[in-house]
């Protein structure tokens, strides 16, 4: 049983990590706590649901489409709204993104109603044996793809010139501007990429969890804890902290009972904030523009 709980926790942790990467990057690069982030997770899941229900498209094939549409949405919101707000006060962005979250979630309810939907791929009920435990294929796929996307984004940031522009802006906004990088453009790109990764996480979780307008919000606690645990703005931190979080949750449920899961998570969160606010992999300069 313990082995089963451990494997499940680790696999779910991969998905949590992916759901957090975009949030953490946006916070690290421009100091915005994007409360609308979870709405991108929900919308990503709905894109997958609609394509599956209408056209029978496999969730794994519709994931790129969910990512593309969330990229456009995230990019647009940053360009049209948030870029104007962060010029005045960073903490104002908390309130604005709260408002955006209200709009997106309510729009989801109006379009899709609050009924709970599900995406059942043909392989949804198959399981494979790993180290003597039974693992559902969809969970394995979700964790594997999450890890791949997270690593891919990490490499993109380090290798591609666009990624390096994002990192440079996070390091020193004024200096990167002098080097010919347009911060407004970088912000919009970061927000778009963050939303796309959240969309991917939503797309993958539609195979594991019921799809409803509030499914994204259920990630909010995990997203906050993992961001702070991994270190704000650190992709590798997010991935590692995601697995750690999944593991701790699974063990808390196993040893103490499911009702203690959230208490353990919040205790972890407050503990990290007080003892090591920069997180496991965070560096002092990230997220300190506020």
């Amino acid at each position: 049983m313990l082995a089963q709980a451990t494997v499940n926790g680790i696999l779910l942790g991969g998905l949590y990590g992916l759901a957090t990467v975009g949030f953490s990057m946006v916070w690290g690069v421009m100091g915005v706590i994007n409360l609308a982030h979870t709405a991108f997770i929900t919308l990503g899941a709905y894109v997958t649901y609609v394509l599956f229900e209408r056209y029978g498209l496999d969730p794994l094939l519709s994931m790129p489409l969910a990512m593309a549409s969330m990229f456009v949405l995230g990019y647009g919101i940053q360009r049209l709204i948030l870029n104007h707000v962060i010029r005045t006060s960073l903490l104002l962005s908390l309130v604005v993104t709260f408002g955006i979250e209200l709009v997106l979630t309510d729009a989801t309810v109006l379009i899709f109603t609050s009924d709970v939907r599900s995406v059942n791929a043909s392989y949804a009920s198959t399981s494979v044996a790993v180290f003597g435990t039974l693992v559902p294929v969809v969970r394995l796929l979700a964790a594997g793809l999450s890890l791949a996307l997270g690593v891919g984004f990490f490499v993109f940031l380090r290798r591609a010139s666009l990624g390096q522009a994002i990192l440079a802006t996070a390091l020193d906004r004024e200096m990167s501007n002098l080097m010919g990088i347009n911060p407004q453009q970088v912000f919009a790109l970061t927000a778009g990429a963050g939303a796309a990764l959240a969309g991917a996480a939503g797309s993958l979780s539609s195979m594991l969890f019921p799809v409803s307008p509030t499914m994204g919000v259920s990630f909010l606690g995990a997203v906050f804890v993992i961001t702070v645990l991994g270190g704000i703005g650190s992709v590798e931190g997010c991935i590692v902290a995601g697995f750690l979080y999944g593991l701790v949750q699974a063990w808390a449920a196993y040893w103490l009972g499911t009702s203690f899961q959230e208490i353990v998570a919040f205790a972890m969160f407050l503990g990290v904030l007080v003892v090591r606010p920069q997180g496991l992999f965070g560096r002092a300069f990230f997220g300190e523009h506020a």
Partner: peptide, 27 residues
């Protein structure tokens, strides 16, 4: 302990307190 945190960190620590309180009352 919490007022030692600055900026965003303080803001989200208070959010965590708020969410944790729900669980504590239930427990």
């Amino acid at each position: 302990p919490i007022l030692r945190l600055k900026g965003h960190y303080f803001a989200i620590a208070t959010v965590a307190l708020n969410l944790a309180a729900v669980q504590i009352i239930i427990q």
